[in-house]
Write a protein that binds this DNA or RNA. Structure first.
Lengths: 239, 239
DNA sequence: CGATGAATTGACCGATGTCAAGTGGCGTGG
DNA sequence: CCACGCCACTTGACATCGGTCAATTCATCG
């Protein structure tokens, strides 16, 4: 257990390619916390004080608009972290993180993280890289929201989820987490109604198989095609 | 000139609160480049090799979608930088930067920047902070695109431009850069037609004054109100 | 077996993008 | 100095995607 934990640490992009010795120091500076399912791990609007890496369990990062509209920024699986915001002084979280299942996390204080960065500059560089990648994803999603129709956005969301949370089964790739139509809608930037329609149509075509709060991808290639092409005219008839 | 340059450096959030001595080293590691108006300073898709700070002149960062649709990510005024992407190895720029006017920039190579970060860890911490702030802005815009109607988005875009590029005149606050309806549309996530309609309506109401590729804000408070409230029912009649 | 919450489905509608036609101002070149 | 033409902008008509609401069905759990 202590072993797999160390592995997770070294895997996380913020702490990757650090010497064993350093990793131990980093590890020693953190405390472990347990969160029961559905807890809010951090709350939007609270002072941003900690950086955390999820060790086991899954969580989601979400944001609520002034009007109550909720969006999901990303799903967080074991090994992923959040809260680099805490290197800012006097800043608040702009999102909440909610445990989907029971979770275990390593927790560093913002100041601790800064001290680590100053002692081991590599960490700072790594952190910049992480943030750059994240910004690229954010811009990607902005562009998609602006230019792609709902069907494609949902397809892309599912593909992303497949990467992070997919699990092979003999029926296809199961998104291994409770995922209601509404969840998927909040993650795709649309409504649960539109998601329902899209998913239904796909399930008729055999692309996915749906259940209560569950999605299984049956035909990954087809889904990829949908994600790209403007619209899939799907009858293979005359050209 | 060498003085004001040093000031700009120290002002930039990536290099702020560094000792004089360090700033000189940082400065020495950069080269200066000139860009004529309308040049592409960096090109989307090219390998991300440099971090740059604009010393004088303005530029804009833009991204084109596969379908040719163009969006403006941000306007860059003197003192602002771009290209932290270059700390990634083997990564390409996901956007272009275009000089709006003739520009002068300080240019660091990606590897140079990494070396600086490893020597002066503060720089890494600062860079993380910059990226965190940027991510927050990106998420903000995503949320706005999803929840706010066009009029409000345009209003917010104008307010942001006012902060960065606004110049007091006796007519009001002039956005001090060539800014066509289309530019504003690409910055607000809409079309030049919608921008045209919105601007026209505002100019009738005396909120702004428009010209060819030019906008002057005449009533900042009013604009702020529009940016927030769902819609401004503007006849002050019966309750 | 009933209740609760998820999902489906249909009808409706509205904001906004698209397209086409027209206007006007500024600069260039005769 | 004037006239022409380009280009930014305006404006109207129209289409449509997708959001909203309401009614119903379904499935899972107690």
């Amino acid at each position: 257990m202590s072993d797999s934990l160390a592995d997770l640490l070294a895997d996380n992009r913020v702490f990757q390619s650090l010497p064993e010795q350093v990793l131990q120091n980093v590890r020693a500076a953190a405390i472990v916390r347990r969160y029961p399912a559905d807890t809010l791990i951090v709350r939007q609007g609270d002072p941003a004080e900690t950086f955390q890496i999820i060790i086991c369990g899954r969580a989601k990062m979400l944001q609520v608009a002034p009007d109550g509209q909720q969006i999901v920024l990303r799903y967080i699986e074991p090994g992923r972290g959040f809260g680099l915001t805490s290197v800012l002084e006097e800043s608040d979280y702009t999102w909440s993180v909610q445990a989907i299942e029971g979770c275990l996390a390593l927790v560093w204080h913002g100041e601790t993280l800064i001290q680590l960065m100053e002692r081991y500059p590599r960490i700072g560089v790594n952190a910049v890289r992480v943030m750059v990648l994240r910004t690229q994803e954010d811009q990607q999603r902005y562009l998609e929201l602006l230019t792609k129709p709902v069907e494609q956005r949902v397809a892309r969301s599912l593909l992303r989820l497949t990467m992070n949370l997919g699990r092979e089964t003999d029926d296809g790739i199961l998104i291994d987490v409770r995922l209601s139509r509404e969840d998927l809608a909040e993650y795709s930037g649309t409504t649960l109604y539109s998601v329902s329609r899209v998913l239904r149509q796909w399930s008729v075509r055999g692309v996915v198989q749906t259940g209560r709060e569950q999605v299984v991808i049956r035909d990954l290639d087809q889904l990829r095609k949908i994600a790209e092409s403007p619209d899939s005219i799907c009858d293979p008839g005359s050209p």
